Simulated scan of single mutants.
Amino acid sequence: MKTKLFVLYGGKSVEHEISLKTALTVLQSIDRDKFDVYPVYITREGVWCHRGRLVERVTDPNDLTIPADPDLANPARSLGAVAAKLFGGGGRQVALPLLHGSNGEDGTVQGLLELLDIPYVGNGVLSSAVALDKAAAKAVLSHAGIAQAAYLAFRYADWQEEGEASIREIEASIGYPCYVKPASLGSSIGINRCEDRVQLLSAVEEAFSYDRKIVVEEEIAGREIQVAVRGNDRALASVPGEFIHDQAFFDYNEKYLAGRLAMSIPAELPEATANEIREQAIRAYQALDCAGLARVDFFLDRTGRLYLNEINTLPGFTAFSMYPIMWERTDGTRYSELIEKLIDYAFTRHADKQTIRYTRGDGQ
């Protein structure tokens, strides 16, 4: 009997389009002899939509948008209909959330799937929520003794009351150039590099339009190195890779629209440095209690010192993304095989959770 695979994509997030691109590649790559695939599209308003089992081959991200049923055009009613129609059907089933950013990569959908008792690919509630919140992740990683760039975090209400003092604190402890980022967002959306106070004020205003908490970081001059990690309790790290570019910072347009980024996989590094990066990546992965997959990003400064930049619990996952290519260059794992490995991790973790007791020893 085939496994039912529910592919969740879209979402109420500024990374909606990226999710569609990821979903397209996954849907084109899934082995239909092993899986019955059920695409589940979540609109920008949070409405859940489906057409049942996927039969045809999809060729364009726009083909993945599904009109909302007028009778179910709100999140609660539409979610109830999807849960009853698809998730409640029984049999061997697993969910594959491909929701980048808010309302999907932040533990919300993971919590829903936990309540529905459906195995799902990727990180759990805690690791998803903490990793997406840059300030929270930095605090955990700092406690684990992992080196990071100097940073400060600010909440909107505090900034409104103490903005001038906050600016002076940034200038005294972080300095210029610095980076301003929304705390809980990815794909370089809302991130700006600042070389003076005028740019800083503009960047802070933009970042607060995407989140109620922001992070300001010092710039680490050097190289940006990435490594792919997969697995549950015994995680594996890929060979490191890097994007070759001549800019201090590449934003959303450079990453996803310009098509000018070139990859170097494996990155040209001394063997000792490559091994250290892989070891640090696994340490960080375990510190955040990650499972399934993550991409861990580092800065390597001109003295050879490593600084962890961030952990991405749902990295770019098209056929041309760094994460799957790093695995292919590491051990020959092809894209479709990688998806199946991640699904296997999901079933293993779900089975492990079934051994947890929810009653006391006396049965109460």
Rank of each mutant, 00 (worst) to 15 (best):
G124S: 13
V125P: 09
V125E: 07
L126N: 12
S127N: 07
S127W: 07
A129P: 09
V130C: 12
A131Q: 05
L132G: 11
L132V: 10
D133I: 09
D133E: 11
D133C: 08
D133H: 10
K134S: 12
K134R: 14
K134N: 14
A136I: 05
A136N: 06
A137G: 15
K138Q: 10
S142I: 03
A144H: 11
G145R: 11
G145I: 13
G145L: 10
I146A: 13
I146W: 12
A147E: 13
A147P: 14
Q148P: 13
A149T: 06
Y151R: 04
Y151Q: 06
Y151F: 14
Y151H: 14
L152F: 04
L152G: 10
L152C: 12
L152A: 14
A153N: 07
F154D: 01
F154H: 11
R155H: 14
Y156G: 05
Y156Q: 15
D158W: 04
W159V: 04
W159N: 03
W159E: 08
Q160E: 15
Q160G: 15
Q160A: 12
Q160D: 11
E162A: 10
E162H: 15
E162S: 14
E162V: 00
G163D: 00
G163P: 02
E164L: 03
E164S: 12
A165L: 06
A165I: 00
A165C: 05
A165H: 02
S166F: 02
I167S: 02
R168V: 05
E169T: 01
E169M: 00
I170W: 04
E171R: 03
A172W: 00
S173A: 04
I174W: 02
G175W: 01
Y176D: 06
Y176P: 03
C178P: 04
Y179Q: 03
Y179R: 00
Y179T: 00
V180A: 09
K181F: 05
K181D: 12
K181E: 06
P182M: 01
P182V: 08
P182H: 09
P182K: 07
P182Y: 08
A183C: 09
A183T: 14
A183Q: 08
A183H: 07
S184G: 09
S184K: 06
S184Y: 02
S184I: 03
S184H: 07
L185P: 02
L185C: 06
G186L: 06
S187Y: 02
S187N: 04
S187H: 03
S188F: 05
I189D: 07
I189C: 05
G190Q: 04
G190D: 10
G190A: 08
I191W: 05
N192L: 11
E195V: 06
D196E: 06
R197H: 01
Q199Y: 04
L200F: 01
L200A: 05
L201P: 01
L201C: 10
L201M: 08
S202G: 12
V204E: 03
V204R: 03
E206M: 09
A207I: 14
F208W: 12
F208M: 06
S209F: 03
S209L: 05
S209Y: 08
S209R: 10
S209Q: 10
S209P: 03
Y210N: 08
Y210F: 15
R212H: 14
K213H: 07
K213G: 11
K213L: 03
K213C: 04
K213V: 10
K213M: 05
K213D: 02
